[in-house]
Simulated scan of single mutants.
Amino acid sequence: MIEIVNYQPQYAPAFRELNKAWIDQYFVMEDSDRKMLDDPQGYILDRGGAIIIALKDKTPVGTCALIKKEDGVYELAKMAVSLEAQGQKIGWKVGLATIEKARELGADTIYLETNSVLKPAISLYYKLGFMEIDGYDSPYSRCNLQMQMKL
């Protein structure tokens, strides 16, 4: 059974490793990644954001962050599911929980940045209700696709 919980400090290593795994598989770690993954409390939570963790048998297998950009606008970032847990709808569950958390935080807009090589992720984002857009400045050299959802 999958349990969706809010981030707690004991999940910091899992948040880092789950994200490092997919970044290393497809890209290279960038300064923006390191800042966020090395200090999720300071970079995400203390600035008004949130992190969702998916647990399977009490073990973190998925995660997603909401980064507050300005009042009402949040970035969905650092969504990851462990290789062993992929194919079990964990990304869907984490995505839905993250969108609900954004609503609780008062978001009216959620955007994300991704890369066109991440086809399963992009398919998930469309299913969750995101649409392609242009216009946000990206801190990532790997970003070639932006998507947005109005709540």
Rank of each mutant, 00 (worst) to 15 (best):
K58L: 09
E100D: 15
K78N: 10
K93Q: 15
R103G: 07
P40D: 13
V117A: 06
G42D: 08
L83T: 14
A77E: 03
D57F: 03
D57K: 13
T109L: 15
E75S: 14
Y74A: 04
E75F: 08
Y26I: 02
S82N: 04
I53A: 10
G91K: 04
A97K: 06
G91Q: 05
P40C: 08
S82P: 05
I110W: 14
G49K: 06
V61C: 10
I52Y: 07
K78V: 01
D33T: 08
D38K: 01
G106V: 12
V81H: 03
L45A: 00
V73F: 06
I122V: 12
I90Q: 08
L55V: 02
F27C: 13
Q41K: 14
K119V: 15
G87Q: 05
G42F: 05
E70H: 12
K78S: 12
E100S: 13
V61H: 07
E113C: 14
K78E: 05
V28A: 12
R103V: 15
G62I: 02
F27A: 13
A102M: 09
S32I: 00
Q25R: 15
I53V: 06
Y125W: 00
I52K: 15
L66K: 06
P60N: 08
K93R: 14
A54C: 08
Y74V: 00
G106K: 10
A77G: 09
D71K: 07
S123M: 10
L105K: 10
C64S: 15
L45R: 00
S82D: 07
Y125D: 00
I110V: 13
F27M: 05
D108C: 01
A97D: 00
E75D: 10
L45F: 00
A121N: 02
S116H: 05
N115D: 06
T63F: 00
E75L: 14
D46T: 04
L118K: 01
I90S: 09
Y43Q: 15
L45M: 07
L76K: 11
L118I: 13
L37C: 12
Y43W: 07
A54Y: 10
K119Q: 11
A102R: 14
L112Y: 06
I99Q: 11
Q88D: 03
R47H: 09
A65R: 04
K93D: 04
A107S: 07
L124E: 03
R34W: 13
L66S: 12
G48M: 06
Y43N: 11
L118P: 08
L37W: 09
L45W: 01
S123H: 09
L124V: 09
L105T: 14
A107F: 08
I51N: 08
E84H: 01
V28C: 05
W92A: 07
E30A: 02
G48C: 13
G72D: 08
D71Y: 10
A50E: 13
P120A: 10
S32T: 04
L118M: 09
I51Q: 06
A107V: 02
V81N: 02
L96A: 03
L37S: 10
V94Y: 03
L96E: 11
P40W: 03
K69I: 15
T109G: 02
S82F: 04
K89H: 12
V94L: 01
A121W: 03
E113N: 15
K58D: 15
L96G: 01
P120R: 02
Y26A: 13
K58Y: 06
M36T: 14
P120Q: 03
I51M: 04
I52Q: 14
Q41A: 15
A102Y: 06
F27K: 03
